[in-house]
Design a protein around this nucleic acid. Structure first.
Lengths: 239, 239
DNA sequence: AGTGTATATTTACACTGTAAATAAAATTAT
DNA sequence: ATAATTTTATTTACAGTGTAAATATACACT
């Protein structure tokens, strides 16, 4: 007996595989992910998965892409909740708060995309870079808005040395030189929220501090204080 | 045939096991660590390791403790390279530079202790906390010195809410209330260097920036600028 | 109807951690 | 010196993993 006709019971098996994979990941961590256990839970055999994902790594990559999409959606939603001119700082704060919130809600997904994810898995960057860029686009975009308004105080931040041949360079929508300072500041901001959030998620912060929320808010305000200068109020000065 | 007499050839097998484990980790990552491959490389059988480490997790824990010791030694050596009063900021900078240097020299060890280490491994915090505290003691100590000199500008940093029953509380050498602000600032500083270093190590920074050194130096200076105020120069003001 | 392709199965192999029983070497006690 | 004991390694075994190969069936198209 081979291939009992299940085609009507499991319409899109590819999605089902990813779903149960997520379930197992959020339940017992990304480390115990196993093709056999996924197949067992779905009532199929393990090699059947190879029709949908050529590899275990291919499945992990698909999961990572989904995670980036979910993360990016949250980031953009938070930013777009404060539209209009004059509310750039609100947008920056909102993306910051949403960053930690999403990470705490999906700690395994966060570690899957921003930490060292899975044993032996090396992320295919050329495939992940687009979704990664898009997910961080909410932050970068807001920083760019502040820069355009002349309200970005980057200090003497070292500019990224991006060579034109680098693949990343082609992904910049507006690749003009003035954007480099935006990317430098974005990276610094990203690294700061990532540092605090990753320590909190991996359980190394609660050993010291209960309630990472207050510490995180303080850090967000420090970031705003360092990189944002007050509006120029040109009407008041010029006349 | 059982137990060929090898006792003279392998004096301290426990150390040899850890050494080859480190070799395999630095060679192909902490994920591909395998008791069997360690045994194979040492010319013994896999179950023999169980005489020295009750578990695979026990071996990983031993490795983590060693990594903390190595990291802590570097941190303290960097700090102690600038002794004497009036050089507190040099000590802070030195520990910061040494932090990144050690992490880049031992990326797998860094991820082993500060990232999500190994599949299915949950770190026994009550065992790791002492070495962890000691390794971060160089930073905390320097921050405490600055605080004692009245040069710490903590702003309105939220204080850690440590309950007296918490095990961490008993580990503080000087558990007076005034130290809480020192710990809060230390955590913030730690999270910032960790954020940048972990992004760089996991290969997510080079996609954007080549040369994380300049960015890291900028971040260290930002940290100093935020948390350290100029010395009071009492001789100049009072008379 | 017949053919072809997609999808699943079975089987198999090389790996992993680890438990149990066993045996020899090393140490200690008599 | 001989006997008993402990330490340290062995072999064997089991359950689990990813994945390659061959096979067989359901479905779609000609």
């Amino acid at each position: 007996m081979a291939r009992p006709f299940r085609a009507l019971q499991m319409p899109n098996l590819s999605e089902s595989i990813k779903n149960t994979a997520w379930r197992q990941i959020t339940e017992s961590g990304a480390s115990t992910l196993s093709l056999r256990s996924i197949a067992r839970e779905l009532g199929i055999t393990a090699p059947a998965i190879y029709n949908y994902f050529s590899d275990r790594d291919a499945l992990v990559t698909a999961l990572i892409i989904d995670a980036y999409a979910s993360f990016g959606d949250c980031q953009h939603a938070a930013r777009d909740a404060h539209p209009g001119p004059g509310r750039e700082i609100d947008r920056l704060r909102a993306t910051g708060i949403a960053y930690r919130k999403w990470a705490l809600n999906h700690p395994h997904r966060y570690m899957l995309i921003f930490g060292s994810p899975v044993p032996g898995y090396v992320p295919p960057m050329q495939e992940l870079l687009p979704v990664m860029m898009r997910s961080l686009g909410a932050l970068v975009g807001t920083i760019a808005e502040l820069h355009a308004l002349g309200r970005l105080d980057a200090g003497s931040v070292p500019l990224p040395l991006v060579d034109s041949g680098h693949r990343f360079f082609t992904l910049l929508e507006t690749a003009d030189e003035s954007m480099l300072v935006v990317y430098a500041v974005s990276i610094l901001v990203w690294s700061r929220v990532h540092g605090l959030v990753s320590l909190e998620i991996t359980g190394q912060l609660p050993q010291f501090v209960q309630g990472g929320a207050a510490l995180y808010r303080f850090e967000l305000e420090s970031i705003c204080r360092q990189f944002i200068r007050a509006p120029e109020d040109e009407e008041k000065i010029i006349p």
